[in-house]
Amino acid sequence: MPRLSADARHRIRARINGRAIEAEAEPRMLLTDFLRHVLGLTGTHIGCEHGVCGACTVEIDGRLARACLTLAPQIEGSEIRTVEGLAPSPDRLSVLQEAFRRHHALQCGFCTAGILVSLDHYLARTPDPSESEIREFLGGHLCRCTGYVPIVAAALNAAKKLREAKPHA
């Protein structure tokens, strides 16, 4: 049980988007700042920084988490996925990302990173959601631009495309 002292920076090891990382943080550093400032992964956005908007959503050990409600030392030894990990390759969008583009599911894009991570996680576990289930699930995110309608449409469309791609599921 090492006690990480408040005034020093401490080595933190984790896997992020399949890559092992090792970097330093004070105990009080939020995961949002650790990702953005220390690791340069600026895809994760910061909206409210106190848990209400969902812009900072990432996956930690297979569960969704608000990065602004996570302390950097809490991720020691964990497996993290961020929005940077969604596209299959640098020049291709995922099915969900492509659906967001087609449906104009983003305007300023501030909320988008968090919503994409969240929906990617959700659709992998709920392949055939109803519109009201998607709306309920999106309750954990705030979007100030779109009015949600195109986001819901993109999610339903992505779900359909993903089902078609995997016929035996």
Partner: peptide
């Protein structure tokens, strides 16, 4: 809005 300093014990 950042937390003030604290020690962390796992």
């Amino acid at each position: 809005m950042k937390p003030a300093r604290f020690d962390y014990v796992r």
